[in-house]
């Protein structure tokens, strides 16, 4: 059993929902990212998604775009992020995932996707999200991920019909990522009523946990979403807190406070 699946089983027993946090690797620098990740776990995150900065992130709003620009200026590369993940793995058994544009995986190292998956496996990565890869285009990478025990998390959208949801669920492992808004990250607000309808549809075809992301930015929204989904994913809001902090101490404090407040709000609503 993978770390992601294990974590969801534990949560189920505790009658709690998963809190997934996204941050951009290398913003403001990789040392900070490496320092923040254990703090975010300790503050109550169940899974961390490390965003690999890309020059042209299509599904991202201005906050994550800016964090990628900043990280790339600092010279962060997929290889350096891989090495950081390896170091983190020695310190924590909690699930770590990557979120990456497909081109960075495709162009990685000597042999592209083969090298990427190999290095990811060695680094102890638990899951991979490629927002610009739909199941139909995953034929090259999916078998490699499966063989390496890395969960492939695909996205379902408000626009996906039942036929597509079936395909997405069949290709996913670990959990299914439900995009809660029609739009890019961190811009519009999600509507729990609409999300509820679509998640009910998803539940008719799969037993995988469903986590909601895009458009969830504070404890209240996270709490509302955790009533309907198995987990909540927060990205832009955390990235903004990291970017806005004046210094290292304030950054750690603000991040920890934020994660704790979301965790508390989610745990308070458990039924």
């Amino acid at each position: 059993m993978g770390r992601i699946e294990k974590r969801f089983e534990e949560l189920k027993k505790e009658n709690r929902k998963a809190l997934v946090l996204f941050l951009s690797a290398g913003d403001p620098d990789l040392k900070t990212t490496e320092e923040l990740i254990p703090e975010i776990f300790n503050a109550g995150a169940d899974i961390i998604e490390i965003g690999i900065p890309f020059s042209d992130p299509l599904a991202d709003g201005p906050i994550i775009q800016a964090s990628f620009v900043n990280a790339l200026k600092g010279g962060v590369t997929p290889k350096k992020i891989m090495a950081m993940t390896h170091r983190l793995r020695r310190k924590t058994e909690k699930p770590i995932m990557f979120m990456s544009a497909y081109n960075l995986v495709f162009s990685y190292g000597k042999n592209g996707i083969v090298s990427f998956v190999n290095d990811a496996r060695k680094a102890g990565l638990d899951g991979l999200i490629l927002p610009d890869v739909i199941p139909e285009e995953a034929g090259d990478i999916l078998p490699l991920l499966r063989k390496s025990g890395i969960d492939s998390v695909f996205l379902a959208a408000p626009t996906s019909g039942l036929k597509r949801i079936k395909k997405i669920a069949a290709s996913s492992a670990g959990f299914l990522y439900y995009i809660a808004v029609k739009g890019v990250t961190g811009k519009q607000k999600s509507s729990p009523a609409e999300v509820k309808k679509q998640i009910s549809l998803i539940r008719t075809v799969t037993d995988l946990p469903v986590c909601c992301g895009f458009g969830i930015s504070n404890p209240k929204e996270a709490a509302a979403m955790s009533r309907i989904a198995d987990g909540v994913i927060i990205g832009s809001a955390l990235v903004k807190i990291i970017a806005d902090a004046k210094n290292r101490t304030a950054r750690i404090r603000n991040v920890v406070d934020f994660v704790k407040s979301v965790r508390r709000a989610m745990d308070d609503v458990r039924s």
Partner: peptide
């Protein structure tokens, strides 16, 4: 070629 886009656009 192909279709490398976020799922939201696929139905469109």
């Amino acid at each position: 070629g192909g279709r490398y886009v976020i799922e939201t656009l696929l139905p469109a």
